[in-house]
């Protein structure tokens, strides 16, 4: 039993509709010549993206953490690299428990290696000490 998964490629503005054939194990089917069953993209980057997207989708996530003693209440944060989609909620749980103290600078590591993702949660906003 195979299933077809349709994706809209986000690599470039072309937004190709890519169809990927998946086997019962959720892996991409391979034809007799060893080519994966990925159709519809106009470039190779699209094929690679589709493979990644089906097998282990990666996402950058953003949130905010509260700041005490700052000129703004919240400092926005994000992962410095994409993390597996399946880890998003675990990472968010760590973000939710975190508060910081001003000053905060863009790029400051707020949480190192959240949920074992081998990424960092970094600040994306400068927050000065409240005057």
């Amino acid at each position: 039993m195979s299933t077809t998964k349709e994706l809209t490629c986000v690599v470039c503005p072309n937004g190709c509709t890519i169809a990927v054939e998946l086997g019962a194990d959720g892996k991409i089917l391979v034809d007799a010549e060893g080519k994966p069953a990925i159709k519809g993209s106009v470039c190779k980057r699209g094929d690679e993206w589709a493979k990644q997207e089906v097998e282990n989708p990666m996402r950058t996530i953003a949130s905010s953490v509260p700041v005490s003693g700052g000129d703004s209440l919240m400092a926005s944060v994000r992962t410095n690299r994409p993390i597996p989609l399946g880890k998003v909620m675990a990472v968010m749980a760590e973000v939710r428990g975190r508060t910081v103290t001003a000053p905060v600078a863009i790029g400051d590591v707020i949480i190192a290696n959240p949920a074992g993702t081998d990424t960092d949660i970094i600040a994306t906003r400068n927050v000065a000490k409240a005057s």
Binding site: P66, V67, L73, R96
Partner: peptide, 9 residues
């Protein structure tokens, strides 16, 4: 609050 233990000015 989004974060109940929110930041304070």
């Amino acid at each position: 609050n989004v974060r109940p233990k929110g930041g304070a000015a």
